[in-house]
Nucleic acid binder design. Structure first.
Lengths: 195, 195
DNA sequence: ACCTGAACACCGTTCAAGT
DNA sequence: ACCTGAACACCGTTCAAGT
């Protein structure tokens, strides 16, 4: 608020004539950002998957230009029109693709934040990693974590000149696994067990 | 910090003799909380799945008693011993179960925060929901979101006296889908395409 | 070794007053 | 209709001083 006000060359309180509070401002920013999202329709019943992938890819492409987007999306608590619109679009693609409402529901949960084009970070730092911090905790010894070390070594061997994980690969891998499973469950006419 | 200090009947600055800063304090809390986590070993090579599920279930059981846990875990940036220990345990179960380092790596990413026993919230509020907020945004009209409405209606029909989603069901569903896929990829000797 | 007091550099937000 | 000034109720953290 204060920083934004300064950037606008105005006193902080001036903002409150235009937004209710900070949450409202962030909600509004998301609305504007999502307004131009392409919403590719599925051409035919069996083309749901391509449309889902394209829609999520469009969402994912927003992130590089807006490093704050992920954190803001994670903290949104209000379902505003553009947010609902994106969910509605994906949902409708599944339904039109022959998924039951039940299965569609669970798949949306399974996709989770990946519908917003990002996935949780897990391994961003190697064991015994960088972390320039004067903390109370002792530096971990890589030898104590042979499994993680094996994974890290393997990853490094596959991509010698990379600094971290290939986030795009992990994202696509996860999406593929989830949509493969979706397709399988759809064909098996899966449905929730009775409560 | 200030609240904790008051609770301890001490001045805020007294805390800084015991922890480096707020992050260090939270890291320490997580260390203590995870210290007693059971780490079930897999009895045999093909029992990896039961051990993974049990390990994640144990993690998940911590949450009800500690509502703050999820938010704190999400913001951790340092890989402390107990955090690495949990990752190492899951990783070692996959490796011992015959998964390649490569596939194990991708599966850990696919599991994401579910290794910490929680999953992202998506539908916590219904369209046109509660939200007592004096925001700038207009109230969404449920008629604009027929797909979401269909899902919500179906969910309500299945669990008439429930107020929200069955988070436990969603969690177990997601875990099942992921581990089914894992098993399938393992058997197919899946490995990353060359870079 | 541990705690204190005063201060710094921030937040988001209210209220009454200005134009 | 929009902006301002002064204030409130908070944060995490530093530094020098106390015991």
């Amino acid at each position: 608020m204060r920083q934004l006000a300064e950037r606008l060359g105005v006193v902080p309180m001036a903002l409150y004539k235009h937004v209710a509070d900070k949450e409202d401002l962030l909600d509004g920013i998301i609305e504007i950002l999502l307004a131009d999202l392409p919403r590719p329709a599925a051409g035919a019943r069996r083309e749901w998957r391509g449309a889902v992938v394209a829609s999520i890819a469009a969402m994912r492409e927003l992130h590089p230009a807006h490093p704050w987007l992920r954190r803001v999306l994670e903290t949104r608590t209000l379902r505003t029109p553009a947010v609902l619109g994106h969910m509605e679009h994906l949902t409708s693609l599944f339904l039109a693709g022959g998924f039951s409402a039940d299965l569609t529901h669970h798949l949306m949960h399974l996709l989770g934040n990946r519908i917003w084009g990002f996935s949780p970070e897990l391994f961003n730092e190697a064991p015994g990693g960088t972390a320039p911090r004067r903390s109370t905790a002792a530096l971990p010894d890589p030898g104590d974590y042979p499994g993680i070390l094996a994974i890290a070594t393997d990853a490094r061997a596959r991509r010698p000149d990379a600094t971290g994980c290939d986030e795009d690969f992990e994202f696509d891998f996860a999406l593929d696994v989830i949509l493969d499973a979706a397709e399988r469950l759809r064909r098996a006419r899966w449905s929730s067990p009775p409560a």
